[in-house]
């Protein structure tokens, strides 16, 4: 069976399901005026997942008839389903891939709008006991993480002669995560290029434990994991040529924490927005209350410039409908 036939079947099944759900849900809330009901399905990045979950949770306080469900298949897995039309919105920790993902969306007639909803700062951390590292340059990070360092750079003194002659213990993201893609691109210049002799994990709490347990360990992950464990870990400032910049909400939002600050997105299907009132209501709520949602979910909120960009981009959803 070819892809377009099977996706048509999937779409048929999904719309039958939605009809059913709409029919079931409609009975409860039909009395009150502008209340909507039904299901909103989101999939994608596990980094952005909690933000959309928080949005769903807060939204439910206003619209109790709408069920927002969030899955976390990863940014790539999310786009796959989004471009088949089986989800209403997709969480993403990187922009959609022009070469591989956009054509699939086009073929299936899925039209979308990209909305940046929060910031993240990939944070390089060492143990709180580490007293010799406060700041690393991108070159030093590249020396530590580059694919050519595999098996060769094993001591801190090889990174910088001022560092002690002690073994380098590395913790990092597993190769399936968007965090890995973004970090390798920023530090090593090529997505996916990294040494492989480090402790790789999809569970960032493992990195927290590993790094906090050893003076000579180093790791990286999203800012929230640092924030939650700030008493055991030390965030390393990053020098990309203009001096050392510490990761924090301000430097991530104003762009000075480069190159490790990254935007977090949701992609909204224009069809879903136009055809399903519950999706439109949810996305409108998400955009209008983005700052509050980011705060409760402990994400780095948008700067004022980013906010007005978000509102402009969201206006594109209405005009097309």
């Amino acid at each position: 069976m070819n892809a377009s036939t099977s996706s048509r079947f999937a779409a048929l099944g999904a719309s039958a399901l939605l009809l059913l759900l709409a029919a079931c849900g409609g009975q409860d809330d039909s009395s009150s005026g502008d209340s909507v009901s039904g299901e909103v399905v989101a999939d994608g990045s596990s980094t952005v997942g909690p933000l959309t979950s928080a949005a769903g949770e807060l939204f439910k306080e206003e619209q109790s008839g709408v069920n927002v469900s969030v899955a976390t298949s990863g940014t790539g897995g999310g786009f796959e389903k989004f471009c088949q039309g089986s989800t209403d919105l997709s969480n993403a920790s990187r922009p959609i891939d022009e070469a591989e993902e956009v054509p699939v969306c086009k073929d299936n007639g899925v039209d979308y709008v990209e909305l940046q909803v929060a910031n993240d700062a990939l944070t390089v951390v060492v143990s709180a006991e580490n007293d010799f590292v406060d700041c690393l340059t991108i070159e030093e990070l590249n020396t530590i993480w580059g694919p050519e360092s595999e098996g060769k750079i094993t001591k801190w003194s090889q990174v910088n002669p001022e560092f002690p002659d002690e073994p380098l213990e590395l913790y990092g993201a597993g190769t399936d995560s968007g965090t890995f893609d973004y970090f390798t691109e920023a530090v090593n210049g090529e997505e996916g290029a990294s040494r492989s002799d480090y402790n790789a994990t999809e569970d960032d709490n493992v990195t927290v434990q590993g790094v906090s347990g050893s003076e000579y360990a180093l790791g990286y992950f999203g800012y929230t994991y640092y924030e939650e464990n700030a008493d055991e870990l030390k965030a390393v400032a990053i020098d990309s040529g203009d001096g050392c910049v510490e990761p924090n909400p301000d430097t991530a939002a104003d762009g000075s924490y480069t190159p490790l600050a990254r935007p977090l997105f949701i992609y909204v299907s224009k069809q879903a927005y136009a055809e399903k009132p519950q999706v439109a209501a949810f996305v409108d709520y998400y955009v209008a209350n983005d700052a509050e949602i980011a705060e409760v979910a402990k994400f780095i909120p948008l700067s004022d410039d980013q906010r007005s960009q978000l509102e402009d981009a969201a206006a594109g959803l209405d005009s097309s409908a």
Binding site: K60, N67, S69, K81
Partner: peptide, 13 residues
Amino acid sequence: LGGLVFVSYDPNG
């Protein structure tokens, strides 16, 4: 199968 990780309603069918 794309298991949901955030569900804030009872499964009802």
